[in-house]
Every structure is written in C-alpha cells, then in structure tokens.
Design a binder for these strands. Structure first.
Lengths: 144, 144
DNA sequence: TTAAATTAGGACCAAAGGGTCCGAAATGAT
DNA sequence: ATCATTTCGGACCCTTTGGTCCTAATTTAA
C-alpha cells in the first residue's frame, strides 16, 4: 500500500488520541481499532521517542499527542516511522538519480512525488479526525 | 522507493533489451547495468513467464521483448512483478477502504494514485529507451 | 510501603524481499 | 552423438517488516 503497515496503523491510532489532559491506553486503542495490541504498542513507543506522542507510565498513564492535532502532519508521522528519505528513492532503482543524473522516469516521477508530498504535508491529524470514522464498526459482536 | 527494487531492476533491464531478432544475455545485461546477475536472472524469468519477454535456451539464446517497446507500459511490468493490486491498498491500513467506506485520507490519496497510474500507464519502454542513459557509466575501470 | 497499572525495552518468531547457488532441461554447433 | 551454452526451477541464506511475549522500570493509589 505504498507506505508500511505500521505507518497506516499509526495514522489510525493518532487520529483517535487525545490532544491533552487524559492519557489513552494502548489496550483500549487497539481494541477500538481492532489492531494487534502488542504491535501497536511498539509503534506508539516509536512515536513517543520521535516526540510526536507524550507518554506516562503507571495507573492513569498512557499516551496523548505532544502537540495540537493541526500541528502534526501526516508527513511527520511517515518520516518518524520510515525515515526522512522515505520518498527519495529512484523508481528505476538507480543508486543515484537526481536533477543532474536523472533516470528516464525522473521528471514524470518527480511530478508524482510532488503531488504526494503536497498531500501529506497539508493533511494533519486534525483533518483525519474531522473525517474520522469513529462509528464503532458493526462487524460482529466480538468477544475477548 | 515506493516500488520494489526488483521492479526498478526490471525497468532498467527491459529498457536495454532488443525488440526482436537477436537475444540478449542475462550476464551481459547484468554487467552493463551493474546489477546482481543471479537476481536479475530470476526477475527476467518472471517477466518471461508473464509474457513480457521471450526466452530461448542454449547458445545464441537469451531474452528479448515479446512485443514492440511502445506496447509495453511501466504498469504492465509493475503488475507482472508485484501483482495486479499493487496500488490498491489503503494508505491508512484499513482492511476495506473504497468509495462507500472511505478512510479519512481516501479522496486525497485517490488523487495521488490517479496521477501515478496515469504516469505509469502512459510511459512505455520506448519512452524509457528514448531517454536512455546508455552512457556506459564512468565509474572506475572495473576488473572481473 | 506495598500493590496494581502501565509504558520501556529486549528476545524471539514468521513471512516477504533481496540475493546466491546448483542441478536439470533445452538448444545450437562441432 | 557430444559438448558447450543458456534458461528453468528449486533450495537455500540474510535482512527487514509485522507480530508476540516476557521482564524491568515507573507511577499512582491504598
């Protein structure tokens, strides 16, 4: 799906995390989003280390956003989890591929990436939350 | 780099393969492009199985394009190597994400993918060959 | 001060991507 | 026929990604 699964999980989770005040529990988040809890825990730890989340241990602990939702772009999250140059590679697999040594697809692909970057830079967690699919998915009465 | 390394290698190789007549050798291709030869061999086999290449065994054998270069789009190659729905996944990692059950990023992302698809559908091997970087890369006199 | 709750962090496992190697089958030339 | 050459196909290895599990550290509350 172009980005890592972990990045997708992160977007889902971050869209459902409080901006300040109360902390939210990994367990609750995972349950609500129907994601593998221990894996989500790992991802949230990474986001905390990256400064995107604040964490607190012990009772009443959990995670919350470190900034206002409209201050956190999708790009920040991508870069935090997949590295700053997640979008920098050459489509054709050339080890070097830039304006002065372009691969045959360089220009066409730069256009694609430009639009993609514009999209992930301008989209923030506030946008995700607005559109949010917080309808508790009617799947099947799930036990456990 | 968004697509697999193998897809990039395939694009490089296919841009350098003859349209008809003579067959080209895996070994020569790999050497010219400075790619890992046995891995490239695997990729070429896949492309042959997918009907994009024609192969011939034995002396004078090798690979050549199965169609005219301008009849083979980058999309065909992507789909052959990464599956028909290489572009279909949801950015946010939702198991289902379509027009009737869109994730919060669905519309923005559909726009990105539309441009990307347009690009890879309209770009053919003939285009790649035209732009081709067939300057034998002046790296360092390489032995072996 | 003790116990419960919760993140932090590491060990570990499985699957997929990237990569190597080797034997078998096919084919052209001698 | 035989031999050299080349693809075909499978076995195998390493690293990354996705995922689980256990223990330690921290914090709140009784």
């Amino acid at each position: 799906m172009i980005f890592n699964l972990a990045t997708g999980y992160a977007l889902q989770a971050l869209a459902g995390l409080p901006e300040s005040g109360e902390y939210a529990l990994t367990r609750d988040l995972a349950e609500r989003l129907e994601l593998p809890s221990p894996y989500l825990a790992k991802i949230l730890q990474n986001l905390a280390r990256a400064g995107i989340l604040e964490s607190s241990r012990g009772p009443k602990g959990g995670y919350r956003l470190a900034r206002k939702a409209d201050q956190i772009s999708v790009e920040k999250i991508l870069f935090a989890l997949e590295g700053e140059d997640a979008l920098n590679g050459c489509v054709m697999g050339f080890p070097v591929c830039d304006a002065s040594h372009p691969c045959p697809m360089h220009d066409a692909w730069t256009a694609v990436k430009t639009q993609m970057e514009a999209s992930i830079i301008s989209t923030t967690l506030a946008d995700l939350r607005r559109a949010a699919v917080f309808k508790s998915k009617p799947k099947s009465a799930r036990k456990r």
